[in-house]
């Protein structure tokens, strides 16, 4: 259950123990709308279905009913500067089915808080503030460049 190098398995050998798994998984927003108990992941290319099941079960304590995986080809595109062909990395997806009783909804992370300004006004305010700070700091030393300070 990791991408490291292990001795080959021969019949009768003890079961392989993995102490420091180095696989990664990331939860992604499913593109078409899914049933509420299906979660989409991207994961390390080397992970098998068994690995995914163990990983979620043992590390995250998430019970798993079924797993389906697919590998999508990375896009072939022209390099922006030189124009040669670049291939993006392939991605392994894991579609994980949770028990019927569990539901998962992808949270809205960029929800506006109450009393929050719009993005552009916020950045404008910040810029103004930093400029005012710079002016105040350099009152007594008009010829000093902006980077000359602690």
């Amino acid at each position: 259950m990791s991408t490291r190098w292990y001795p080959i398995y021969q019949r009768g050998n003890p079961q392989l123990r993995v102490f420091l798994p180095n696989f990664w998984m990331k939860l992604v927003r499913p593109l078409p709308q899914q049933a509420s108990n299906i979660v989409h992941f991207q994961c390390s290319m080397e992970m098998t279905k068994h690995d995914i099941k163990n990983y979620l079960d043992k590390i995250y304590n998430v019970p798993i009913i079924d797993i389906r995986t697919k590998i999508t080809t990375g896009r072939f595109r022209k390099d922006a500067g030189k124009g040669y062909i670049v291939k993006d990395d392939d991605i392994k997806y894991a579609m994980v089915v949770l028990p019927k009783t569990m539901t998962f909804e992808f949270p809205n992370i960029f929800e506006k808080k109450k009393g929050d300004l719009e993005d552009d006004t916020k950045s404008l305010e910040e810029t103004k503030k930093s400029f005012r700070k710079y002016i105040n700091r350099n009152k007594d030393r008009p010829d000093v460049p902006s980077w000359f300070s602690i």
Binding site: F19, W24, K26, R29, F110
Partner: peptide
């Protein structure tokens, strides 16, 4: 060390997830 490894592993997965979501939402 064994415990810390899993803490870091989870942290890294969390950061990857958040980074992916930020890129999706163009933030």
């Amino acid at each position: 060390l064994h415990k810390l490894w899993y803490v870091l592993l989870k942290e890294r997965n969390m950061l990857y997830t958040m980074e992916h979501e930020c890129n999706e939402q163009v933030k």
